[in-house]
């Protein structure tokens, strides 16, 4: 993974006033979209997920800064994924359910029905829509801010919150330790072979030293934290406030209202 170069603490680049998503409380961005995500799991049509997909893209394009990486994710990764998933699912749909629809493709005995394609793509589109909703918060929030908001608004004990913050710091360290262990094993001629099996055997050999090193490091960091009054009081002075403001409430309410409107208008469930 490319985690080595990523600094989990680097502040997300200053947002222009248009990029309102950065100014929202992370919890608001979660609370706003979670109901829609949950309901989406249970829809079967194409229109509802498509609507949510388009809407989420609109929100992201307006409210977030689009870097090359996010652009690639939004305009290459997600569409390709949906395409691949959709056709993949279509292949495995039970032919009995869709035998009445129009055959699209026939290879020998086997027929691909339009119904199968529909089911396949509905499934893929649904997953895509859920993903796009999650990206609204995911692209515009840092992990540390989510943790701070959880401590400040959800009253998560700060020792747990800081454990999470410490975890973010361990990420680059793991990358470093892994590269060292890799080099060390290479030098000792350990599992030098090529091919997937040698590679798996090699990876397996890294696990214990890597984890042992990481846990030792964690124990040392714990001593240092204890020595600096970690856990002395139930709460601590907060310098980084992640406030929950009116705009956050407005965002949540808007999200819920729009979701409700879409589900009502398109009502994707047949009534008995």
């Amino acid at each position: 993974m490319s985690t080595r170069t990523i600094d989990p603490y680097a502040a997300i680049a200053p947002a222009s006033s248009r990029h309102f998503l950065y100014a929202l409380n992370p919890l608001a961005k979660v609370a706003g979209v979670v109901p829609a995500m949950l309901l989406l799991v249970f829809v079967r049509d194409l229109a509802t997920p498509a609507t949510f997909l388009v809407l989420s893209y609109a929100v992201i394009l307006v409210g977030a800064r689009i870097t090359r990486r996010t652009a690639a994710l939004l305009f290459l990764g997600v569409p390709l994924g949906i395409l691949a998933l959709g056709s993949g699912f279509a292949l495995w749909v039970d032919a009995g359910l869709v035998r009445d629809s129009i055959p699209v493709l026939r290879i020998g005995e086997w027929t691909l029905f339009q119904g199968a394609l529909e089911i396949g793509f509905a499934t893929a589109l649904r997953l895509g829509a859920i993903l796009a909703l999650a990206l609204i918060g995911g692209l515009t929030t840092t992990g540390p801010d989510l943790v701070r908001a959880s401590v400040q608004q959800l009253r998560v004990p700060y020792r747990i919150g800081h454990t999470a913050l410490a975890a973010f710091r361990f990420v680059p360290r793991f990358g470093y330790e892994l590269s060292v262990i890799r080099a060390a094993h290479r030098v000792r001629g350990h599992h030098g072979g090529r091919g997937p099996f040698a590679r798996i055997a090699r990876g397996w050999g890294y696990i214990v030293p890597l984890l042992a090193g990481a846990i030792r490091h964690a124990e040392r960091v714990a001593l240092a934290m204890d020595s600096r009054a970690f856990g002395a009081h139930p709460t601590r002075t907060e310098r980084h406030l992640v406030p929950f403001r009116v705009r956050d409430a407005v965002f949540i309410v808007l999200c819920l209202a729009v979701s409700a409107a879409i589900f009502t208008i398109l009502f994707p469930w047949q009534l008995p």
Partner: peptide, 26 residues
Amino acid sequence: FQDPDAQIVTGTVYDEVAFGPENLLL
């Protein structure tokens, strides 16, 4: 402690020094 790497818990120099006093609820 001896190993300076194992004493760093935050992401900036300033946060690092403030970590202790914050815990003291000053």
